[in-house]
Computed example of a mutant assay.
Amino acid sequence: MAASNSNTVSLKLFIDPNSNRLLFAEAGKDFVDFLFSIMLLPVGTVIRLIGKQGTGCIGNIYDSIENLGNSYMLSGNITDILLKTQAFNYGVYKPGLWSSLSTSIYTKFYRCSNYKPKEDCSKYMANGFSWCPSCYKQMDLDFTFVNFRDKVGVGFVKESVTYMITDDLAVRPMSAKSIFTLLNHLNIKDAGDLEEKVIAVGANEGVELLRASMQTKTVLTAVFLGGKKESSIKSEPIH
């Protein structure tokens, strides 16, 4: 389904009103790309997004890095590298639903300023100020990546396909067979009893989906039927 604006994507929900459970959602490339991008998030960024509660001892590691401060780190930007780094490559995926993340947290890369042809300085880059293994000068020149978008496009999945997202975030191509198989598995006798809702998913919902995915196997139900406001939702029965 098409995005409603640059920072939201549209999602169609299919709900069983009898059990108040969200059975599956119909989604396009934009939402599936967002789901798959979760796999690129470093642990530090995940904890910063969803909070430290429910993350076990990993939260204590996060606190330790914060509390030690730069005086104990090898360089001043290591704290940000550990806690705020993202693995997104904008040539592959532009994370619109992660718009709450400041662009300043993206790791910067540096290269050596030595251009002598006999040196091997051009082979190295660092994600913070460091010293060149070849000439031992400081690596302090910004390294800029240039991404060329080819005919394959940007993101992870193809745009011409409609996808089914089940309550536990399993993703598969949408088809009559996949719908019938799921409803049969869930013992839903009449698809006409289901309700359909179309919603706009933004950064806040994206974070809640990330949080719920680590706490429950009924993620869509928890996020979209867990007391959320209905003001932006259209509801209509399936015919």
Rank of each mutant, 00 (worst) to 15 (best):
L35D: 03
E195S: 11
S71P: 00
Y93M: 04
K151Y: 10
S113G: 15
D30H: 14
K108G: 02
A203L: 00
M139P: 02
G54F: 01
S71Y: 08
A27C: 11
N184F: 11
F31M: 12
P133N: 05
S134K: 03
F156M: 09
A191F: 11
I233Q: 09
T162V: 13
S71E: 14
S122K: 13
M39C: 12
E159H: 12
I50D: 08
I65M: 02
Q215I: 01
A25L: 01
S71G: 09
L220A: 06
D63C: 07
T181P: 00
E26W: 01
A87N: 15
P237Q: 06
P173F: 01
Y106G: 14
M174E: 06
N184D: 15
Y163N: 02
W98H: 08
A170M: 11
Y93Q: 03
W131E: 11
F36K: 15
F180T: 14
L210H: 05
G69V: 04
L183A: 04
W131M: 04
I47S: 04
M1R: 06
G69Y: 01
P117H: 05
T221I: 03
S113L: 12
T181S: 13
E195R: 10
S104L: 09
I65D: 02
P133V: 05
G28V: 06
Y136V: 08
G76I: 05
M1Q: 07
E230Y: 00
G51K: 08
F156A: 07
S75D: 13
C135P: 03
D140W: 05
S75W: 10
F129I: 13
V92L: 13
K229P: 08
K217T: 14
G51P: 04
I81D: 08
L97M: 03
N77D: 15
F88P: 02
A191N: 03
G96L: 10
K234V: 11
R211A: 13
H239C: 05
F156G: 08
G69L: 04
F88D: 10
K137C: 10
C135Q: 03
S231M: 09
D142H: 10
I188M: 07
Y163M: 05
Q215P: 00
P117V: 10
L41S: 03
T216R: 02
Y90H: 11
F34K: 01
G128S: 12
I78M: 11
T55Q: 15
S71H: 12
D168N: 15
A27G: 05
L97E: 02
C57V: 11
K217Y: 07
A212L: 05
I65F: 07
T79S: 14
A170W: 01
D80R: 13
S175M: 07
D63E: 15
K52R: 14
A176P: 00
I238A: 00
N89G: 10
T107W: 00
V161P: 02
K137Y: 06
G54V: 04
R172I: 10
T221Y: 04
S134M: 02
V146M: 09
K116A: 13
C57P: 06
A222R: 12
V32W: 04
F156I: 10
P17Y: 08
S235Q: 14
G96E: 13
S102R: 07
F24V: 04
Y124Q: 03
N89I: 12
T221P: 03
C121D: 07
L23C: 07
I105P: 00
N114W: 03
S37D: 05
N77A: 12
I78N: 03
A170F: 11
M73H: 10
A27T: 05
S75T: 12
K84A: 09
S130E: 14
E196L: 13
F24C: 05
